[in-house]
């Protein structure tokens, strides 16, 4: 079975008494080790899909299997557990905790995964080394540049060895040179550590760097193309 398997998945939001469908009839299959983008204009439902993929939210209909496990019926607590064990997040706005230093930020998922302090520290430093920030471990987020902050965020996503990293517009707040660096890091992690990457973006340049593009429009999968073009 594929790493991610979605079957006839739908999500309906309730606005007062009116039902607003955000996603309809999503059938999607993502294999382990893929490097793909979910693309679409704003309001297309790609963020909703991302939230469901990341187990931040549950679908209202259909099935979602993650790593062979049906996660569409899980409750909040179990979803938190799945997020902790299998998913890493990278956000557009970095979302680091401003008052604690880089290494403590990276440790955060391990705290909720009940890893003891010394092992936590070691794993966090290893993750920072992977993104090339070993020497910035004691810096506060505000003392780092945008690119560096995003690399800390990537280290945080990596630290509990997830199956999949979900990145929501990860280069949206960065200049093009830094964006390229970040994309390089993603590609290397994908190649060397076989981590599956799912990027949500509306930027076609970024999309073109991925192996596969899934296009969402009006809550439905409109296209699914394989890239064999540009290399990083």
């Amino acid at each position: 079975m594929a790493l991610i398997q979605m079957e006839n998945l739908g999500k309906v939001y309730q606005a007062g008494t009116v039902d607003v469908p955000a996603l309809e009839e999503i059938d999607l299959s993502i294999e382990s080790g893929e490097f793909l983008a979910i693309m679409g204009p704003s309001g297309s439902g790609k963020s909703t899909l991302m939230n469901i993929l990341g187990c931040l939210d549950a679908p209202t209909s259909g099935k979602y299997f993650l790593d062979g496990e049906d996660v569409s019926e899980l409750g909040r607590e179990q979803r938190a557990d799945v997020r902790n064990r299998k998913i890493g997040f990278v956000f557009q706005g970095f979302n680091l905790l401003p008052r604690i230093n880089a290494v403590h930020n990276v440790e955060l998922p391990l705290i909720y995964g009940h890893v003891n302090a010394s092992q936590r520290h070691e794993q966090a430093r290893d993750a920072l080394k992977l993104v090339g920030l070993a020497d910035r471990a004691d810096y506060l987020p505000t003392q780092l540049s945008g690119g560096q902050q995003q690399r800390v965020a990537i280290a945080r996503a990596l630290v509990n060895s997830p199956e999949i990293i979900l990145a929501d517009e990860p280069t949206g707040n960065l200049d093009s040179r830094t964006s390229k660096e970040i994309m390089m890091i993603f590609r290397n992690l994908n190649r060397e550590r076989k981590i599956t990457f799912v990027l949500v973006t509306h930027d076609h340049e970024t999309g073109d760097l991925m192996d596969r593009k899934i296009l969402i429009r009006d809550g439905k999968v409109e296209g699914d193309e394989r890239n064999c073009g540009e290399e990083l």
Binding site: R83, L108, R156, N160
Partner: peptide, 16 residues
Amino acid sequence: TREIGIRMAVGARYAD
């Protein structure tokens, strides 16, 4: 609130 959201995203539960 945002901090809480970040903590929840990385796996914090209710009780945490």
